[in-house]
Every structure is written in C-alpha cells, then in structure tokens.
Design a protein around this nucleic acid. Structure first.
Lengths: 124, 124
DNA sequence: CTATACTATTAGGCAACTATAACAATTCAA
DNA sequence: TTGAATTGTTATAGTTGCCTAATAGTATAG
C-alpha cells in the first residue's frame, strides 16, 4: 500500500465522522466540515478513490471502503484517546480537541498503546 | 514577525543542539545531523539569516540570534518535556524521542503548560 | 420545461520543502 | 604551491496541498 499522508488521514477521519452524522456524504459536506474549497476536495476525493480508500457512487455519494474505514477508525481512536488524556491533564475541551487533531498523526503505534494503557488504568 | 514553520523550528533546534556539541556550527554539520542535502540546507540557512533568526559570519559559522535562540529553546524544552512524559508512560527511549520530535511542533502553549505541570508534580 | 441554484471538475497558480547536477570557492596536505 | 577534498551556491525540477476562476453537469422549484 501507498503511504497515507496526514491530509488523507484527515479526509478519511472527516468522512467517518460525517457518515455518522449524515445520511449521505458528498464532497460538499467535506468542504463545509474542513473549510476547503470544492476543487481541493474534488481532487482529494479523486485521489482517495483511485487508491481504493473510498467509493463514490453514481450519485456522487461517498463511502469508506474497508481499507479506508480501517485507517479512519485508527485515526479517530487516536484522536479520542489523545483528547481524553489531555483533558485528564487539565487542558480545556476545545484546546484538547484542537491539539489532538494534530498529535493524532504523529504518534507511533507504541506510544499510542502506552497512552491507551495509561487511560485504561485510570478507568477513563 | 513572520510565522515560523515546522521546518524552520527543526533547523533552529538542530543548530541549538549542535552548538552545545560542537565548537563551531556550519551548514555541513546541519546536513549531517538532519540528513538533508547541501543545497537544501544552504537555502534554509539563507532564509533564516534573512529573517534574523541566525547569524552567519565571514567564515560561514552559524550562530543563533537572540530571536532564533528563543524559538530554539522553546522547541527544545517542549521536546524534552514530551519525551520525558512518554518515557514515564512506558514508551522506550528511542520511540519517545522520535515521537517527541513530531509532537513538539503541534501542541499549544496551554497543553505544554499542563504537561509540564504534570511532570513537575511527579517530580520528574 | 426552463431558469436558478447547487455540485463537481478543469485549468492554472503559488508557496514550502525537498532533490540532483554543475559550478565556485575555500581549505589543507603533500 | 598546487592538487584534491571539502564546503557552499545556483539552476532546475518534483511533490504536496492549498487556492481562484471558469466551465460543466445535475437537481429542483415555478
């Protein structure tokens, strides 16, 4: 598989979140959520489609493939754990979510496992 | 002042570390430390010089200006605190340092303060 | 059914940050 | 003191990821 960039991780995570929130997900929804222009999202969608990360049907509705879903779930889980740990350390909700959005792309499997273990032990 | 990119933060941090390790710091040393080509570092050095972050003397020796030093110290302090906290959570030394290199550019002032406070309380 | 609004794509561009190749300048050792 | 190695720079190019402007296609309301 190709390397998945931070940008693509963010697109996939956004699609996952939108899938839970909306009946249907289309490029426009991604624009609104991420604050990017339509051409930018259009090109990103094309790329992710070509890499088998998403499926785009004949009505332009977007869904995650199993492969894309696996990545999205991974990123989202990191996001959640990081945000929780930052909150536990005293960071306010808003900042914790913002910082988690960035850190989620940076940590190794190992570090993630340790963070998760720590929070599990704290029963949070 | 201009926005300092992650790349520039890394160059400044590297110069700080090299300054402590070596008598003199030149572009070549940065190449060796960071694994970048000479042209790449040459251009980065020129930019940082123009932005008043470093000084380059007539023998091409590089030093941090007060402004550059302030940034480098900030990044380095984040790096240290993050690496220590990850180690405390059970991450091995090598991985902790690698991940800290990435996370150090992403966390807000607020999150950094909380991380530091946590480690201070643990007396680590 | 047609005009409007909405959605998607194409074309062209720009800023960062990296690279290689080639050249210039400097240093240093024989 | 000259030839080789080291160091630095210029020119050129590729990738990523964003943009605006313009075009094309689709859906919907009158």
């Amino acid at each position: 598989m190709n390397h998945v960039t931070e940008a693509v991780e963010n697109y996939l995570e956004t699609i996952l979140v939108l899938s839970q929130r909306l009946q249907e997900v289309r490029a426009t929804d991604i624009c609104a959520e991420m604050g990017y222009s339509r051409p930018t999202v259009s090109i990103a969608v094309k790329g992710m489609k070509n890499n088998g990360l998403i499926h785009v049907d004949d009505r332009n509705l977007i869904s995650l493939t199993p492969q894309g879903l696996a990545i999205a779930n991974g990123v989202y889980e990191r996001h959640t754990v990081i945000a929780r740990i930052l909150t536990y350390l005293g960071v306010d909700q808003k900042t914790a979510l913002e910082d988690a959005c960035k850190i989620e792309h940076d940590i190794s499997e190992l570090t993630f496992a340790c963070l998760k273990k720590f929070m599990d032990e704290k029963q949070l």
